[in-house]
Design a protein around this nucleic acid. Structure first.
Lengths: 131, 131, 131, 131
DNA sequence: GTGGTCTAGACCACA
DNA sequence: GTGGTCTAGACCACT
């Protein structure tokens, strides 16, 4: 599994990285315990600023997706934190966009099901490499 | 139905307005033909600059949610434009966020269903007021 | 043949009307001598301001597509005026748009040919009605 | 290659700039990867407000002609997006204008060919300067 | 140092 | 009286 930066993407780079890690966890490509590259290593690989990677990691830590320790670096560690209320609001906006365009409820649900089906089982893949 | 500005919200103001209009259409609060306030009127009501409102309207127009006429201002007019491919990618990220937090597939789907159930029927509410 | 106004169209109404008349002449739907409705008549039919129609007619007259007489109203009368240099510049921009998107030269030319094939013969249809 | 502003031109300034960039791409003067001046730099050079330049760039980005990066400014990046359906309608109007003036089909096609012949090969001119 | 957002106010085109 | 364009200048987000 590979992290990458898309300059054409409107999202800030740190957000792209954050989203990619979250999706990788959802897909099951990485799981509880998987070590992430060091910020400096990843920054070098992606040719982005060290602070940018740092910010992505910090965001992931705040959201409870990874744990950062001084000596062993960052690793996936999904805390029990439930998705916050903003998550639901954001999802509502996302679904409204399609519904307002007259996409049928069932079609929208089908897309959701398809996406969820693309996510992996919950068996942690310890030790799988990320970068 | 009322549009508002939340200064604490991280989204730009024009995006908040855009999202609120899209959700209002999805809920059925406003529908085909509903007139939106003029840019300058809404700007005055919300105490924001008219350019900000103008930008929100322009975005909605580009996305095919409203129609802007030189004489009568803006009105809801859902064009046939389908949701763009980015929509699905964005939805995937949104769903991944919850799935990565170990929220069960069925629970996520239930939330989607709940949200969709909160959206209105497809009967346009002509003449309903927006501001 | 019918003139119409599309409020969703970004072009000003007077420009829409002007364009429609020009295209009608090109298609051969109307030709040398065809009478146009009076400004007041057309304005009433289209539910637009009288000045708007007037402006469209004035533009067509200036460009040499119609002749306006006080007593018999407006009628198609294509003057010998050649297309001005702005026409070529405008066409260049139009073609550049497709070429810059990597559309092959031959494909672009094919579209031009198709469009031209859709235009009529040069037999004037005297007396055909416009509105 | 030089961008410029023609005050006598009826088109809005941002549209002029947009058109000039599109034509420059078509001519091959600039190509994939060519960096455009920063918005504020170009604005200073042309003695217009940076918002005006910004709007031109935003339009080009939406149309898929350039890519705007937060760090390195704008660069030519022709996306796969095809020309929209409006393009053909617009071209039809353009061609109708000449055909309605009795310009022979073949002459019109010759003009199209001439214009297309003036466009460059599809070899990107990396590094060529724009302003 | 780059683009993005917002404000404020002027003037024009259109209807 | 509507939206569209442009100017000017401030502040913020991102890198």
């Amino acid at each position: 599994m590979l992290l990458y930066v898309d300059l054409a993407d409107r999202r800030p780079v740190y957000q792209q990285l954050r989203d990619q890690v979250v999706e990788a966890i959802a897909r099951g490509d990485i799981g509880e315990g998987t070590r992430l590259p060091t910020t400096r290593q990843l920054a070098a690989d992606l040719a982005v600023n060290f602070h940018t990677v740092s910010r992505a990691y910090d965001l992931l830590r705040q959201e409870g997706f990874i744990q950062v320790s001084r000596k062993s670096g960052a690793a996936v560690y999904v805390s029990g934190k439930a998705a916050p209320p903003e998550w639901r609001a954001s999802l509502r906006t996302q679904l409204a966009e399609a519904y307002a365009k007259d996409m049928p409820r069932d079609d929208i649900l089908d897309v959701c099901k398809e996406i969820l089906a693309g996510f992996g089982q919950r068996e942690p893949h310890r030790g799988s490499s990320l970068a």
